[in-house]
Design a protein around this nucleic acid. Sequence first.
DNA 1: CTATGCTAATCC
DNA 2: GGATTAGCATAG
Length: 216
Amino acid sequence: MSSSKVDDQMELISHFYPHIYAQLAQEQVSLGEKMEPRRRRKKNKVEGRNNTSEVVMRKRKLLSEEQVNLLERSFGDEHKLEMERKAKLASELGLDPHQVAVWFQNRRARWKNKKIEEEYSKLKTQHETTIIEKYRLETEVLKMKEQLCEAEMEIQKLLLERKSDISSNNSPISSIFSMEQQHFDLGEFGMEGQLMDDNMFFVADNQSTYITLWDN
DNA sequence: CTATGCTAATCC
DNA sequence: GGATTAGCATAG
């Protein structure tokens, strides 16, 4: 079921981060259609000073651990890079100030990405919690409906018993007695009520309303 | 060897 | 400043 989980994630991403979704979706399609897994390395066209274009392999050197450490410490202090700090760092690191600027730019991008991922996983957790709570509440509603149904059946049963008592014993005394308010305790519902007549039931809830239980 | 992750560097 | 490219390292 990991695929449906992925689908869920994709759906969430598509909702909150359409751009990321587009990127991920594109990647998935690429893999699905067995596209070339990775683009071939291209030679990079670079404009020369004399306006003639030449083909040059882009050179790239990874920064040393020491250089990265200093850059990271600097980034920790402040994500933005002032001219002064850029020049100072560059000379300390033995790098071109432009390289320092690029490093900060890339670092900010990584940082932002990380933040987005953190936010996403937080939202995902919240979402899952909400789904579970929703399920719990739905179950509770079902249970309560069932209880309500049982209680109504019980009331109906009692009323029918009373009715048959009245018809089988027609003495004035019992008739008067039968007119007295009868008390019910609905136990599980935690509420009490009084039967007012054959189809009205006074419920002592917050609203203190009369509830018509059924139509005769 | 290939696939993949990371990231310096470039492009727009 | 975001998107993309491509050099490099390395896991499998």
